[in-house]
């Protein structure tokens, strides 16, 4: 459904570009949720914006690589050009629904606006489709809520409205950038459940971006772990959590409090992620890696296939079967 190949997003002058996303590749199938996980600044949001054609302008740009939607190259197309060219069936939801919704318009009108753009219907027909969409996202009392303003809704309900707007184009691909980070856990679990249900029911491909390994474990089918602009490990979710092969992935899991109940001190990853553009040669994780070899500091690490569908960007990956 969606193929991303060697995507490189750069900032700075053409003559001396700094890559904030460096050669990212992944595939996303129908009805599949791919989790893209990493810490702030790792390039996961830039990847999602580049995939959507929504990079802020002027600013970061796609310097190399391709985004293929059902085989068609949409890399350099603006969102409206994609719609005109018939590739409009991608949608995105964001972290903070309050900043994405217009505070002075009724939510029914905001959903109907998206319906008008994508379905060419208006008036009562668009509103009735808006109501259907609210039912689809399991909004309580959808008929009443059409005339509500965003401030009258709870955070979870607002995110449901955002999802309804995203579904107006009947998307084949839904990109979700930290959609539950601003929500309480009790509401997060509802929104994650809704996304899983919609993915199955509508056979959508979902690219789910988060910093939270717990959320990834709950929701994703496959996972790509990003660090300093690169995907360092990709695997099916069971394989990733059962047998992480990259030292960074393992480190991320080890320092989660919920995996360490009762221990006196939490394991940590020393140091901080590198500033983009400062790693000249070798592995980007070498500075923080506990198992670093001399070779890692000079030679770029190979992309190894640890097992079927389990790729790791490391010259000295962890052996399988290390975690219980």
């Amino acid at each position: 459904m969606l193929s991303v190949r060697d995507l490189t997003v750069s900032v700075g002058p053409e003559t001396a570009p700094v890559d904030i996303v460096a050669g990212v590749s992944f595939d996303l199938a129908k009805g599949e949720i791919l989790g893209l996980v990493g810490e702030s600044g790792c390039g996961k949001s830039m990847t999602s914006l580049a995939v959507m054609g929504l990079l802020p302008q002027p600013g970061p740009r796609v310097r190399a690589g391709r985004v293929l939607l059902e085989g068609s190259d949409v890399t350099q197309l603006q969102p409206w050009q994609r719609v005109e060219a018939g590739h409009g069936r991608m949608a995105m939801i964001f972290q903070e629904p309050m900043t994405s919704l217009n505070p002075v318009r009724r939510i029914g009108d905001q959903i109907a606006e998206a319906v008008r753009v994508h379905e060419g219907i208006s008036g009562a027909a668009a509103l009735s489709r808006a109501r259907e969409l609210l039912e689809l996202v399991r909004m309580p009392d959808p008929g009443m809520q059409l005339s509500a303003y965003p401030h009258q809704l709870s955070g979870g309900q607002r995110q449901r409205v955002m999802i309804a707007i995203a579904l107006a184009c009947r998307p084949q691909v839904l990109v979700a950038d930290e959609p539950t980070t601003a929500l309480d856990v009790t509401i997060q679990v509802q929104i994650l459940g809704l996304l899983r249900e919609l993915c199955n029911r509508l056979d959508m491909a979902v690219l789910f971006i988060t910093h939270d390994m717990g959320v990834i474990a709950q929701l994703a089918d496959r996972v790509s772990v990003m660090y300093a602009g690169r995907i360092v490990e990709t695997a099916a979710v069971d394989a990733l959590f059962g047998e992480p092969r990259h030292h960074y992935t393992r480190g991320l899991m080890d320092c989660m409090p919920s995996r360490n109940s009762g221990v006196r001190r939490l394991p940590t990853i020393s140091g901080q992620p590198p500033v983009p553009g400062t790693v000249a040669a070798g592995c980007v994780f070498a500075l923080r890696c506990a198992a670093v070899h001399d070779e890692c500091r000079v030679a770029a690490p190979p992309r190894l296939e640890a097992s079927q569908g389990h790729e790791v960007l490391c010259a000295f990956p962890l052996a399988g079967g290390e975690l219980p």
Binding site: V185, T186, Q188, V189, L192, D212, M213, G214, V215, I216, A217, Q218, V237, D238, F241, M253, M256, S258, R259
Partner: peptide, 8 residues
């Protein structure tokens, strides 16, 4: 509701 980091 805590998302447990365990896909099983």
């Amino acid at each position: 509701a805590i998302p447990k980091p365990d896909p099983s």
